[in-house]
Computed example of a mutant assay.
Amino acid sequence: MHPDRRPPERARRAEPSALKRLIRFSFLAVVALLVVSGVAGGLARAGIVLGRPDASWLAAATLSHAALMICGFLGTVIGIERAVAVHRPDAFVAPVACAVGAILLLAGAPWAGAWLLLAGSVAFAAVNVLVVHRQRAAHTVLLLVGAVAWCIGNVLYVANCGPAAVLPWWFAFLILTIAAERLEMTRLMPRRPAAAPALYAILGLLLGAAALSSAPGTFGGVLYGVALTMLAIWLVVFDIARRTVRTQGLSRYMAVCLLSGYVWLGLGGVAWVGTALGCPERDAALHAIGLGFIVSMMMAHVPVILPAVAGIRLRYGAFFYLPLVLLHLSLLARLAAGTIHPGLRPMGIAANAVALALFGATVAAAALAHRRSAGSTSHVSPSET
């Protein structure tokens, strides 16, 4: 019997229940709200105001832009992915706390929102302890270390220590999570014996620099930027994407996303060093990493993670490259051309937002295309890249 031609009773059992569909829809709606609010706050910080400029939610989104994007949007998404992976209902405490905390930030309750974000990160760290207990491996330990880095950043955020102290830990959380996932993907790839120790040394340097970033002087910031650049070089040299970029279809698309993201990570590290030394490169440092690197990683993994986490399958096509190309071109306009001609900077920032919206539309169109061609073999299936 063809695997897609199941008896009606079995097919009905395989369908998600109405409650599960409601939960999935609720999470997707909240995630969409957080990313839209975070992007709107980023645009407002750049002087590009959408809607009423005196709206209280927009003022809150402007003030809490980084927290909404990193802890609210990405923290919730990563928390859902980890909760689904461990198959425990109580693991959803972490993403729920992060989502509610971010909504409280938007509602003008920053103190309560910050404490809920901290609670969510602590619950997320507990989930990662369980992951390490089930599978003791280098990549699972790195995931746990990244979760602890997020907790430290949120403790500093609750204590109102300022961006210079908080952001290095928040970025360390995302960077260690990505590094751990790439280490898992390349575990079967032959590497030089010194490759793994070099990675651990670089990540240790990154964490040490994060701890020093709030101290007076430039040493912590310079060290943090150097660690970012070294990590970018390691990823370019040792990641399996160097091989899969020569393939076709989804694997090549993912590899292009990854390799281009590594380039932005290296540029962000250089800009971070410049910022620490007093150069006006803060926007380049933060957004080369936050948009160029992290969003590129997101674009690479969504076609594989979304079916596994939300049960939404996508039909891959070359149109997936459109938002990726727009993201990189708009970042170049924002960070490079904007330095030469200041008028290009707001255009680049606006195009950043358009690239994110276009990616969301691309994913939605790919999901609809798969539903229309259900039963065909053209849908996206999880694969390593």
Rank of each mutant, 00 (worst) to 15 (best):
P3Y: 03
K20Q: 13
R21Y: 09
R21C: 08
R21E: 13
L22E: 09
R24H: 10
V30P: 05
V30R: 02
V36A: 14
G38N: 09
G38Q: 05
G41R: 07
A44L: 01
A44F: 02
R45V: 10
R45G: 07
G47T: 04
G51V: 04
P53K: 04
S56V: 09
S56N: 06
L58K: 03
A59S: 07
T62F: 03
H65M: 10
H65Y: 08
A67Q: 10
L68E: 01
M69Y: 04
I70A: 03
I70Q: 03
C71A: 13
C71E: 12
G72A: 08
L74N: 03
I78D: 00
V86G: 01
C98A: 15
C98R: 09
A102W: 03
I103M: 14
G108Q: 10
A114G: 10
W115G: 01
L117F: 04
F124G: 11
N128Q: 14
V132T: 12
H133A: 13
A137Q: 05
A137N: 02
L143Y: 06
G146Q: 07
W150G: 12
I152V: 15
V155N: 01
L156T: 02
L156R: 03
L156G: 00
Y157S: 09
N160H: 06
L167E: 01
A172S: 15
T177A: 14
T177W: 14
T177R: 07
L183S: 12
T186I: 15
L188G: 13
R191E: 10
R192L: 15
P193S: 15
A195N: 11
I202H: 05
I202G: 02
G208I: 06
S214T: 06
T218K: 12
F219R: 08
G225F: 00
A227F: 05
T229E: 05
I233W: 08
V237R: 12
F238E: 11
A241F: 00
R242K: 12
R246L: 04
T247D: 07
S251R: 13
Y253L: 04
L258K: 04
V263S: 01
G268D: 05
A271H: 02
V273C: 11
T275Q: 14
C279H: 14
E281S: 15
D283R: 13
D283A: 15
A285K: 08
S296K: 05
A300D: 05
V302F: 10
V302C: 05
V302K: 04
L306C: 14
L306F: 15
A310W: 12
A310C: 13
G311C: 11
L314K: 03
R315A: 06
R315T: 02
S330R: 04
S330C: 09
A337C: 06
G338D: 04
R345Y: 05
M347E: 05
I349L: 00
A350D: 07
A351N: 00
L358C: 11
F359R: 05
A365C: 13
A366K: 03
H370D: 15
S383H: 15
E384F: 14
